[in-house]
Design a protein around this nucleic acid. Structure first.
Lengths: 234, 234
DNA sequence: TACTATTGTTTCAATCAGAAACAATAAACT
DNA sequence: AGTTTATTGTTTCTGATTGAAACAATAGTA
């Protein structure tokens, strides 16, 4: 028989890898726990009568203020090594709570990994109750994270790379309208390699899902690029 | 606080889609619950101190007798609609158990989906404690299943199709040594379409991961095909 | 008006993929 | 033994796709 007075499902968590793109770099959001300096992925728990997807959306909404964002599940982590109750206890006591040794947060957890793609400039990251801060970090300079979170980031990046071409996934990292160069920079940041400009343009246009709009006169002394957007269905 | 006298983690289950190949058809294993006629995927629960992957392997071992098999996680199902406590209750009472209304099996569950690829001829399917029988069903003739299991099968097939080419995944459905024709039949069964023989052979050989062995003299009045196996690393 | 930086497009060659033809061969049949 | 048949292994031809470079257009600057 199962009792749980917290209102959350025990043993089940989620961790979210939130990708943004800025300054030609791919970045993710990391939180820092109160008074510990420990970094981790933003995560959370599932309410007793809440769909899993909804729980993750709720966490994203609270931390980014965004509601309609690209979100996808990529893997569920269920090993025993990932669980470190003594660390969890330190986090909770650093938060200056009175924690009993059988608190539900000290149990073993299975965590569902999600990744989100968001428009960096639309976000004002907000820390949650347990964390001091939430900040962007370059994906190629991720420091040591708690638990198995470095591994989770790696899996998320793998998944993102292999699914990059599906319906121009990557545009979720850009504003509504973008130049071909920006799109290529997103691809290059995710794949970690330079792409040929002419072939990239040919490939993107051949997908037939981009609308071309007015030109963007940036003031540079050169030809102005077109702006593009994803073609609306219908 | 969480109490659970069953020895299993509450709220967490797995469902396995076990693929086999026989008679040029792709098949999966389904169980039939005691005295109900209801069909479902073979699934199970995770022990309190057991890795998730290990729990799934344990279930496969008990039902197929096989130990070293290809097994991969593909999605975690966490909606609320998938939960049907009244059906679960009927299954348990049909098993003629005395079930209280707060039994842990009647709670809401999140289920991790795995698929396995096994050599059909090596398996003697064995029903578990709750099921009358376990049998093979053609994937293109799956009857109505309990809960969201039809959806889970669909997701598993999608995943299998899109990952089919990775390291010749499909050979896990065949014996150690196989002919090129058998391999092509597996591909065709999974993809649900006919492939060009010459191009298929060229593509498989170009991967450079097949060893060619002696010919297979089947007695037919025609050229004997070579046998192949996956190249061992090193 | 020439110059520069960047963008959009075209061209050329190399590679890959689909379809058909060709070659080889194990057994059966005369 | 020679012929036939079914199937397998390979090659060839063609068209499509991809990679790299050249070419063309253009917004601002000198």
């Amino acid at each position: 028989m199962t009792l749980n007075t917290s209102g959350y499902l025990p043993h089940i968590a989620y961790d979210s890898v939130i990708f943004g793109f800025s300054g030609e770099k791919l970045k993710i959001l990391l939180i820092e726990y109160h008074n510990t300096g420990w970094l981790a992925l933003p995560g959370g728990f599932v309410k007793v009568n809440e769909p899993l997807d909804e729980a993750v959306k709720r966490g994203l909404r609270e931390r980014t203020g965004l509601d309609q964002i690209f979100l996808e599940q990529f893997y569920t982590f269920g090993s025993l090594e990932r669980v470190k109750p003594e660390i969890m206890k330190k986090i909770l006591t650093a938060h200056d709570k009175d924690i009993s040794d059988d608190h539900w947060l000290l149990d073993r957890f299975i965590s569902v990994g999600y990744y989100a793609l968001i428009d960096y400039d639309k976000v004002e990251p907000t820390p949650d109750a347990l964390s001091d801060s939430i900040n962007w970090y370059d994906v190629d300079q991720i420091p040591e994270l708690l638990f198995d979170h470095n591994f989770i980031v790696k899996k998320a990046l793998d998944h993102l790379r292999t699914h990059l071409d599906e319906k121009l996934l990557s545009v979720n990292l850009l504003p509504e309208r973008f130049t071909m160069k920006e799109l290529q920079q997103v691809y290059e940041a995710i794949l970690g390699e330079k792409l040929n400009r002419a072939n990239f343009q040919r490939k993107m246009l051949s997908l037939g899902i981009l609308d071309r709009h007015e030109k963007l006169y940036s003031g540079g002394s050169h030809k102005a690029p077109y702006l593009y957007s994803i073609k609306k269905k219908g």
